[in-house]
Design a protein around this nucleic acid. Structure first.
Lengths: 132, 132
DNA sequence: CAGGATCCCTGCCGATACTG
DNA sequence: CAGTATCGGCAGGGATCCTG
């Protein structure tokens, strides 16, 4: 693997953090991934994003729409029907994130292990002074 | 490009968000990218992360160490010298993030444009009722 | 059905001061 | 040099109620 060009990325990392910030916005990735399957309605997204509130789904979708990641289509009917579609930009973004999804599936457990190991090394130092 | 398997990622997106959350932690990506160049000292990272406080650099590095992304090496000298090195895990993670860095460099401006366009469509609706 | 408005709590993060 | 400890601002995000 070639990591020799990574030093070039340090300045760019600044800008990339803004991108990461959106995607890490708690529900953004989930919504993008779901819309990656196909166009969906508000209620459908609501059901699939288990635990999300109306407010957060609305806020998330507005942000995605504003950033050009999704298109919001309102069908003038009663009851109202609103559909959300991933744009081309949104799709390329989802593709850019895929490596992280794959990485997490592959290495997520290593993080848990490292964390548990770290905590074991630290916690005794705070609680057990008797273990000299 | 193949996006047909994306639906498989919707559940995994949940877990991947935790990963994104770390990386989006404001200074994490910058630190990882800098350590991707080579092993560095605390002070060196501090200088290169323009605007970071001691506290945030320490907190960030502790988190990365805990998650197994960096190794912290204390040299028992006076004055103290502490070096931070990216682990193999950290390196694979950095590679997983690279696409986002590249993506941002390529499409960052489109977001700005989309945002400006959206704001133009929305703001007049709130302020200028005279523009019938 | 889709979403606007409001209240409130929590945690991130920055500034500052102190230490070995 | 490389931290630690404390305080405080502010925004993210959840719960709840109301509407066309």
């Amino acid at each position: 693997m070639d990591v020799s060009g990574l030093s070039e990325h340090s300045p760019e990392a600044c800008r990339a953090r803004e991108t990461l910030d959106r995607v890490a916005e708690k529900w953004t990735l989930m919504v993008i991934a779901l819309l990656g399957e196909r166009t969906k309605r508000f209620g459908e997204l609501k059901r699939e994003c288990v635990g999300i509130s109306q407010r957060m789904l609305t806020v998330t979708l507005r942000g995605l729409e504003r950033d050009g990641f999704v298109i919001r289509t309102v069908h003038p009917e009663i009851p109202p029907r609103v559909e959300y579609t991933l744009t081309g930009l949104g799709r390329t973004m989802l593709e850019a994130i895929e490596p992280i999804i794959v990485w997490t599936a592959a290495h997520g457990d290593e993080i848990d292990a490292a964390r548990a190991s770290y905590d074991e090394r630290q916690e005794p130092a705070r609680t057990g002074q008797a273990a000299g």
